[in-house]
Each structure stands twice: as C-alpha cells, then as structure tokens.
Design a protein around this nucleic acid. Sequence first.
DNA 1: CAACATACAAACAAGTCTGTCTGTTTTTTT
DNA 2: AAAAAAACAGACAGACTTGTTTGTATGTTG
Lengths: 174, 174
Amino acid sequence: MSSPRERILEQAAILFHHQGYNSTGINQIISEANVAKASFYQHFKSKDDLCIEFLNKRHEYWFSKLIEFTSKSKNRKEKILSAFDFIIQMNERENFRGCSFLNILSEISKEQQNILRVIQSHKNDLRIFFNQLVKDELLATHIYILFEGSIIESQLFESNEIVNKSIAIVESIT
Amino acid sequence: MSSPRERILEQAAILFHHQGYNSTGINQIISEANVAKASFYQHFKSKDDLCIEFLNKRHEYWFSKLIEFTSKSKNRKEKILSAFDFIIQMNERENFRGCSFLNILSEISKEQQNILRVIQSHKNDLRIFFNQLVKDELLATHIYILFEGSIIESQLFESNEIVNKSIAIVESIT
DNA sequence: CAACATACAAACAAGTCTGTCTGTTTTTTT
DNA sequence: AAAAAAACAGACAGACTTGTTTGTATGTTG
C-alpha cells in the first residue's frame, strides 16, 4: 500500500473532481484515504495547501498525458487536432467533469491568491504549448481560446458536440 | 425600501458573485438583506431554490443588457463585435468575476440537475443569439466558442487581453 | 374596529467544517 | 534489541451550515 501522503492526494483528486473543492471536507478525504487526521496535518499545513499540491500533481499528470497523446502525430496540424481529440478522450475517461483548474477558479475567493497563481501558471503553459506549434501568435491564441471553450462547453452540455465543431473549425483555419 | 424578497435576491446576487455560491451562507444573506430567517423560508423553499431564482433574474438582466448594448450597432458584423465589447464593459463593471452561470456550474453536484438545466438554458439562448446574427451555423458556433472562451480567460487572468484578441479574430473571420 | 397577511426576533436541531491535541501503536533506523 | 520517527485513533474546540419552530409585532384590507 502507498504512503499516507500519496493516499491523501489520490483521494483528494477523486473527491475534488467529483464534488468540487469546497464541498469536499478534510474528514471525508482522510476517512476514504484511511489516514488519521493528525497524519494529514503532518503532511499538509492546511486544506489550501493540499489544494495547491493537488493542482501541481494534476498539472504534471495532465500535461504528460497531453504530450504523450499528441506526440503520435506526424505534422504540426495533426498535433493540434489531436489535442482536441485529447479533450474527448479525457471527457469520456473522467465523465465530463471539465477542467480541475477552471473548476477551482470558480470556487476560490480573492484571498486565495496562491491558488490562483497555480491555475494561471497551468494555463500559461498551455498557451505556450500552442505557441510552440503555431508560429503565428494570433492564430495560436485563436486555437487556445477554442480549446478552452471546448473544455467548458463539453462540461456544460455533457457532450463532445462543441469539441467536434472546434475540430472542424481548426481544420479550416490552420 | 424594497420588499424582503427583493432585498434577498439583491444581496444574494452580490454575495454569490463575490464569494461564490457554496461559500455564501443563508445567514449572511439574510443579515445583509435585513430580513428574518423565517421570512426567507417563506419566500424560498431552499437555498437551491434561491439559486434558481437568482439565475433566472440574472438571465433576464444580462440578456436585456446585451441586447440593449448591441442594438446600437448598424450591421450584423458590428453587432457581433459589440457583443465582445459588452464582455469588456461587464468585466470592468463587475471586476472580472466572470460568468455567474459558469461559476455555479463548477460548484454544483450531479444531484442539482434543476440548477444545471437553468444554466444550460441560458447558454442555449446565447447560442441562439449568435445563430440569428450569422446564417452559417458553424461560423455562429465558432463565434459562440470564442465568446465563452473570452469570458473565462478574462476572469482567469483578470484582463481583457483575450477578449481583444477575440475581437481581432472575429473581425477576420466574418 | 376586526381580521388577515406578512415580517419580525431569536432559539433550536442536527449536522458540518477546519484545525489542534493527547496518547498509543507501529515501523524504521541505528 | 534500543532509540527515533512516523502513523495511528479519536476527542475536542469553536465556529459554521441549512432549515424549523414559537411567539410577537406591524401593516393592510374589509
């Protein structure tokens, strides 16, 4: 069995995804992770601290999956298109829960600037990802906005319809 | 002074916007609206019920403002572009709090289907708005996705940069 | 003036929340 | 095997949550 710290992060990921950040309590996390409360506070100094650790892990996981998925493509255009296929795959795998980062963005207050910065940093890396694939800066931003819109809309309508439309659009503009 | 019901909805709008739905308690709403708790539950059967009433009011307010704002434009292209200007205006007026509907989308669970439906209905009306302005259905969807992406990204980066980029993009594709 | 509707205050129930603390047990290292 | 580190259970504080209830006061309408 894995370490308490890993079990906490594992369960937090599942519960934050399913119920949202504010609706998930420490007690539920430790109970489902089979960890004592004292142990929790030995590894994380607060719930917000856990949130940041979760987002960092999620960032690593999500990006490595994206790069793994898109690297199968031969040319740049296909790579961009496969990024949208990646959304579809993740939607189906994670039951249209949307983006962890954008979900938490909607839940935090102005006081939680440290969390906001992690979210901004994640999305910045995504913009860089598209900027490296597309030389034209405006076009790269264009694709980024379509990408973000696709994630949100598939969560909202619990469907890949908008993602598929985006694929058709990207096909025509690149 | 307005009626208790109106005062509740007024304060709920402010607080939901500032702190989010789950982080705002009934007690705070009634205290700042100067309404007794018994009176609250005479007008709303639950907090979720208040949420739906709030979203319905917000829908009316937001759409009427959008139509008022865009109706100043002469032709269709200008109307579409002014919709993006409307985002900028709202961002500045409401301090980059983003879309009430998308914010609440991230906070609700699978059990709150009645709230989800109100959110979907709002966004559906927005899609219809663009569909009426643009005959080409894929282009209308394209603009809708850019619009949604613009709202989210301005909230995330607390900036109108992406909205302005969207305006340049829409200029070139319509 | 009487009757009714509405709003009030404030206590209460039953549960949640984060975070702290004490003391015991298990595991690892020397 | 002894010492140190880590994890355990679980009580506790103190404040929060939604929703109910009781009884009182105010205001409007017949």
